[in-house]
Write a protein that binds this DNA or RNA. Sequence first.
DNA 1: TAGATTGTTAATCGATTAACAATC
DNA 2: TAGATTGTTAATCGATTAACAATC
Lengths: 209, 209
Amino acid sequence: MANKSCIIRLSRYRNALMRLKALNFVKVFSENLADAARVTAAQVRKDFSLFGISGNRRGGYLVEELLEQINRVLGKDKLQKFIVVGVGNIGRALLNYPGFKKNEIELVAGFDIDASKHNREAEVPIFLLEELNDFVKDNGIKFGIISVPDFAAQQILELMIQTGIRGILNFAPICLKEPEDCVIRNLNFETELENIIYFTNVTEKTEVR
Amino acid sequence: MANKSCIIRLSRYRNALMRLKALNFVKVFSENLADAARVTAAQVRKDFSLFGISGNRRGGYLVEELLEQINRVLGKDKLQKFIVVGVGNIGRALLNYPGFKKNEIELVAGFDIDASKHNREAEVPIFLLEELNDFVKDNGIKFGIISVPDFAAQQILELMIQTGIRGILNFAPICLKEPEDCVIRNLNFETELENIIYFTNVTEKTEVR
DNA sequence: TAGATTGTTAATCGATTAACAATC
DNA sequence: TAGATTGTTAATCGATTAACAATC
């Protein structure tokens, strides 16, 4: 079945397709999408077949149709609302990030224990942590982002789960345990940079040969 | 050989080890690290053997020794300097992110085309884009972060490569092509959230059965 | 020594790629 | 029709896991 990489690629095809659409492209071939997403054409077709997405044997895919089908898979058919717990550096950057709105993703509120960050009037309001439970339940929020320091992360996770949140992106540098019927993705900037450092150094060394 | 996931796990083991060290732990078993990084014990040992990292057949691993060996693999034996191009939301958050310093990673400067962001006196100075080339060459920088809008990303990439940068983390929602002997990692917030949305929805559905 | 844990090999599992028949 | 591209099957490749001999 669909794995994580498969969905990442679908997102990438989608990004490329939106750019093509803006250029008034009508058709696209698996080969083109492969180039855009840095994969093979066979993989593009394989990915599509996994989701029952089909094109024309001869004419490739219609940009508009393909976008619609991918959107359906990725849940773009309706607005997906997230809340953010921890309005520090990263939390604030995410709340101000303009890329989400175009993609049917909305960060609807921030939460922080620090009362000085509290701001009910902001475009995206910042509430006190105590208000999380009511807000999530009242608004039927399913998704959250954790951007608190590592020592607080586990506690915030449990709180989020209790309120009914089911999908979480965690920026704290600690691997949170995925509770039953929940989805957690751990993302950490240090780890990303360490990856780059390692592979850059390896590339340099192998080159010397 | 070592793949991307393998290095991500190494970073995670390291995070856990640093926490154990702070708690004055002396020894650790593959089983413990497996729990911390959410993998199997067999995988921990396999990962270590790949890098020639060894413990004691009976007594597990010495925290201090293990940390040193992982640090060597990840390039933690010296400070790794990055520059950031694009001082918007994300760029600024990264420049202020406190997690890097503890990990032998330093963001030494930011660059932006917008002169109003220019600030030579800041703790981490922000320069004009024109100054990138000289700065990178003068300081022997090897690593960079791209946090500019998508339409500018490819151009910035080429500029970075010209200056001698060899490892890049790209936040723009476009898959940049990895030039010969360079390492590029594409990281995109929308894509991360789309992943969570998809798998959360799938989890919910399968549960209903 | 007896017991426990490592390090490594072999088995399994899953994802990617190649190839080609179907077909527009 | 002839040519080109899809959709899918089979082959390959690589990563994870299981198992167990080595050994502290």
